[in-house]
Design a protein around this nucleic acid. Structure first.
Lengths: 357, 357
DNA sequence: TTGAAAGCGCTAACAC
DNA sequence: GTGTTAGCGCTTTCAA
């Protein structure tokens, strides 16, 4: 049979290639094309732009693909077309559950458009960031999504020089490297102070991770609190209790203990994450402090568990999913040659009122 | 000056390339080589195997790199060398915090060896898995790390045919596709039953996510419980209370309520995740049930918060970090041409005794 | 609608 | 130690 002979010939080709020098992979587009009796470029078109070939050719190519189990080499395609369909995402760490939603939404939205996400962890100190950036740029992704804004001029220059679309997230700045999807940490701090003040709180404090963004929220919170005439713990210059990032439940417990020593009469605490807030609630319960009657708590993140706590946790909701999917859309648009009309996007935040305040 | 002329010439080259047809990227290895006055391959060696070139050449190439800001195109390198230094990781979802540690350890360990991680989310139903697999294989990663074992024969065949090293994780099977790093869910179920029995518990139940692995743990738990003479809730055939995966704190609360209706006299509950256990503890506290006096709880995962709960949570510890770093080592070894001596690795588990039982 | 030629930017293999 | 040659597997451009 003709068809069998062809297949045998192609298999022989592959085997020969494997032996002769480099042990190169399996079937290639050329093999598929040969089997289908067309030129490689035609097979390529059948796979990438099926509308551009005749029904007959399409069918023959599809048959050849099925027969061989051919999977296109996207590396080669990327090299030739200058489109890698790869997007890099850089987070400080995965384990603070804050960025998870964003990475998840990013991955899902991009996967729907045929892109894959490459993950990078920078750590909270930006030391590894430069090396990471080179590793990323070297792969020529179609986009880079960064958590936080880029401070190092070195990194900014490299990003700019690469010409790769960049989305900075989880923060706001008038001078982004390229595009931006975030919200204002300062406004959150101020809004929380205002909220607690409106609820009649008089002596407030913050338990805050000591990463840069949390500190800015805590500072804004303290300044607004003072402006509104609320009292802060006085024993120290720092108006907040700082714990190491990423924040944990244990930090929340020890944070409350420390806070109560410094200022036993506080009536509200702003925690820089819901996990901290949960720790605080557990510690409060263990020490017989009633929430919200004796002490009000407000967290940040609106993690999935927050609504189900006892009492349900009042918190600042940040829509991590929207950040991820917006960033994905920005990158996809750019990568398809469209320019993004409004490349700076403030997604804001919402204070979710529940029973803990 | 000679040097400046050279640089100008090279820049002119790049500009010409950009105009003439394809708007190709920035500096290439050829430009760097030209600037350094050596052949491209020599520049390549200076970058990849610095020991293989003279000090003089090395210095000249490094100068040229610094001058141009050249970042090697790893896509092209991968195509030529058949080594992508990319590893794919597939998880059902990122948001159950169980797999986070694994992904984190994988990313970190691989980054140390110059590899990047590509992330894929398969969802708990394996429908998207086949498409995802093709997208992954198409990028010719040097390794694929899967969460769970691969059941679909279709997927197994494709993985095998690809010739890419595969590590299946978070489970055990005598017939892995390739390599395996995991533990036995059946043994966990049995061990927990045994543990509760040893603690004098008589009427036990399980609250379990309804994903495949959790169900197997719950089943093994129930069977062992019966064998040991403990009572299970009787109203239903299912010996456990199933909640939708991924498990949440809210599920834990509602799970306990449901369980208490069916069997008000239970004295111990095995939760398929620490998050469920936390929900159960919160619900118990809200209903005035004392833990562990009236009801003992054991979770699974030993998440970072578990030790800090009130009471601290007894749980089954699974070393997600070890799974990730072992998988990474397996892949690195393979990808360096070494064969992995013992490619099936049972990392086991530990019951961490705390106060909740 | 299809194809031939010419690369994408790099490295393996084999000289020198 | 360094260079020459010839691809890796695909897509672009241009011609038929």
């Amino acid at each position: 049979m003709e068809k069998e002979n062809l297949m045998n010939a192609v298999v022989a080709d592959v085997t020969a290639r494997r032996k002769g020098g480099r042990k190169t992979g399996g079937f290639t587009l050329r093999d598929v094309a040969k089997l289908a009796g067309v030129a490689p470029i035609t097979a390529s078109r059948a796979l990438n732009t099926p509308d551009a070939v005749s029904a007959k050719v399409l069918q023959k190519v599809q048959a050849a693909v099925a027969q061989t189990g051919y999977v296109p080499n996207l590396l080669a395609g990327a090299l030739a077309s200058q489109k890698s369909r790869l997007v890099a995402a850089v987070v400080p760490t995965l384990s603070g559950p804050m960025f998870l939603e964003t990475v998840e939404a990013l991955t899902d939205t991009l996967a729907g458009a045929g892109y894959q996400v490459m993950l990078g962890q920078s750590g909270y100190e930006n030391s590894r960031e430069d090396a990471l950036l080179d590793a990323i740029i070297g792969r020529r992704p179609d986009g880079i999504v960064l958590t936080g804004i880029t401070r190092s001029p070195q990194a900014r220059r490299r990003l700019l020089a690469s010409g790769i679309p960049v989305v900075e997230t989880w923060d706001l700045t008038p001078t982004p490297v390229d595009m931006l999807v975030g919200f204002s940490h300062e406004k959150i701090g101020a809004a929380v102070a205002q909220y607690l003040h409106a609820k009649g709180k008089k002596r407030v404090a913050a338990i805050s991770g000591d990463d840069e963004r949390s500190r800015r929220r805590a500072t804004a919170f303290s300044e607004a609190a003072v402006r509104l005439g609320m009292a802060l713990p006085q024993e120290t210059d720092i108006p907040a209790c700082l714990v190491t990032a990423p924040t944990t439940l244990g930090n929340g417990r020890s944070g409350l203990r420390e806070l109560l020593q410094r200022a036993p009469d506080i009536d509200a605490v702003f925690c820089s994450s819901d996990l901290l807030a949960l720790g605080l609630m557990i510690e409060a319960q263990a020490s017989g402090i009633a929430i919200p009657r004796q002490l009000a708590v407000i967290g940040l993140g609106d993690l999935s568990f927050s609504r189900d706590l006892q009492p349900p946790l009042t918190t600042v909701r940040i829509d991590g999913t929207a950040i991820g999917s917006t960033a994905a859309r920005f990158i996809i648009a750019r990568s398809e040659g469209k320019s993004v009309a409004e490349p700076i996007c403030d997604l804001g935040f919402t204070i979710i009122e529940r029973a803990s305040v």
